[in-house]
Design a protein around this nucleic acid. Structure first.
Length: 417
RNA sequence: CGGGGAGUAGUAUAGUGGUAGUACGUAUGCUUUGGGAGCAUAUAGUCCGAGUUCGAUUCUCGGCUCCCCGACCA
């Protein structure tokens, strides 16, 4: 992608009022645009990041036999009436202009919708287990949207639901999802803690959350420094400075961003929708369910909150919008221009994702400042200076380390393959 | 939803009861090019409504929006 063409521009100054790091850097970098409080557009650069996160999630979901699907955002009242969740107060009612009262809500979760669908297709123990997920926009009437992507009125979420013939099969899958989630966040460059939490409107059982420790996070968790055991403050009996109930290690109290959660649902939803199956003895049983969520935008925000410096974002490899940021300096020199275009073409030919700063009206300083702000992991510079050594300069955004690579060696260099 | 703060050009800001200023951006031209370049010219603005007033961007009231704290929140 040529930077001169990209839809979205960097801003020199952070938008006034914005306090959270993710809002400042993502808006300045041209990743996102705030349409309303807690309602964001993803510009091409930001959408690439979100898509990278989605790719990671899809890969990991598919690896645990979860099938991707897509459900409606408009959820009819009958679904939530079945579980008495129509009046919960989280959602936005969707009323047609010609209707007197709302018969739909903009989906804020999809247990009911999917359970109703599943009840049509699951009849036998042979149909179980089953896991299905979607990546979709959820709508919640947050009375106070805040902190950029961390708390929105609408946000993109991956929601997975699983269906099992037995409690043990469910527990087994729950553990598999736990490991998968930890891996997803790791691949996104995040360190997460696995936290015991409450179930809210979803379930009476305890649930688990995945937290990124971070001062801007709204949750408060108690974490053991020794074994990593953690509990959400909502339900915790632990104390800061106290001893861990598992290993007697020291407990600390931290703010944290909840990027994911997993819920045992038992038979609450399956019973509400008559989701039963016949076991191998021909006897009717209720399906055991679980639900598992990841906030994609919140994950993106958490990455920015934890991976940045004074100059901008430092994207981890697998969430970065591009692999390389190719910067040409003094492109009025036709030789520089020609070599930069050649490297750009080499990247395109090899399928390497590259953002090419081909802007001819920007100074070197501005190009570097923008590169730091946008935060692509590797910066390549072509200039008269590097060409005098027949080289391209390679700079690591995270470490600041600089190397020169002979242009003649580019095609065989491992990072270009 | 309670409390606090803020709304002036695309962005960030200054200022005033009487023709609204600066910087950046953007446009054009020329000169520049290793850490947000220079000169010139141009471009563009007082959140909405009501009130007070000869006159309101400024004062008063109401509304809306944004940010922060709290409550709420898989």
């Amino acid at each position: 992608m040529r930077q001169s063409q990209i839809f979205g521009k960097t801003l020199r100054e952070a938008p006034k009022d914005e306090v959270s790091v993710n809002a400042k850097l993502l808006e300045r970098g041209g990743f996102i645009y705030k349409n309303s409080a807690g309602v964001y557009s993803y510009l091409p650069l930001g959408w690439r990041v979100l898509s990278k996160i989605a790719d990671i999630i899809r890969e990991e979901m598919n690896a645990i036999s979860a099938q991707e699907m897509f459900m409606p955002a408009l959820v009819e009242k009958k679904y939530l009436d079945a579980t008495s969740r129509w009046d919960v107060g989280i959602g936005f009612e969707a009323r047609g202009k010609k209707e007197k009262s709302a018969n739909f809500v903009l989906g804020w979760t999809h247990e009911e919708v999917l359970t109703a669908i599943a009840s049509k297709y699951i009849n036998s123990y042979k149909d179980l287990p089953l896991a299905a997920y979607q990546i979709q926009t959820k709508f919640r009437n947050e009375l106070r949207a805040k902190s950029g992507l961390l708390r929105g009125k609408e946000f993109i979420m991956k929601d997975l639901y699983s269906f099992h013939a037995s409690e043990s099969d469910f527990r087994n899958y729950y553990e598999i999802v736990k490991k998968t989630y930890l891996n997803i966040f790791k691949r996104c460059g995040l360190k997460t803690v696995y936290t015991l939490a409450a179930g809210g409107d979803y379930t009476a059982e305890n649930t688990h959350e995945f937290h990124v420790l971070c001062p801007v996070g709204e949750d408060v968790v108690f974490v053991c420094l020794k074994c990593g055991y953690a509990e959400n403050k909502e339900i915790s009996k632990l104390n800061a400075g106290g001893k861990c109930s598992k290993c007697a290690g020291k407990i600390i109290k931290e703010n944290a961003i909840e990027v994911g959660n997993i819920f045992p649902l038992g038979t609450k939803y399956s019973d509400a929708f008559n989701l039963n199956f016949l076991n191998s003895k021909g006897k009717k049983e209720s399906v055991i369910m679980g639900s598992y969520g990841i906030g994609l935008g919140r994950t993106m925000g958490a990455i920015v909150e934890t991976l940045h410096d004074d100059n901008g974002i430092i994207w981890p490899e697998f969430a970065a919008p591009y692999k390389f940021h190719l910067v040409e300096l003094k492109n009025s020199n036709p030789v520089v221009k020609k070599e930069a275009e050649k490297i750009y073409k080499t990247c395109l030919d090899k399928g390497i994702e590259v953002l090419y700063d081909d802007r001819d009206d920007k100074s070197a300083g501005e190009k570097f400042a923008d590169a730091d702000l946008i935060g692509i992991p590797t910066r390549l510079v072509i200039s008269e200076k590097t060409l005098s050594k027949n080289s391209v300069e390679i700079k690591n955004r995270k470490t600041g380390k600089i190397n020169l690579l002979k242009i003649s060696n580019i095609k065989n260099d491992k990072s270009f393959i």
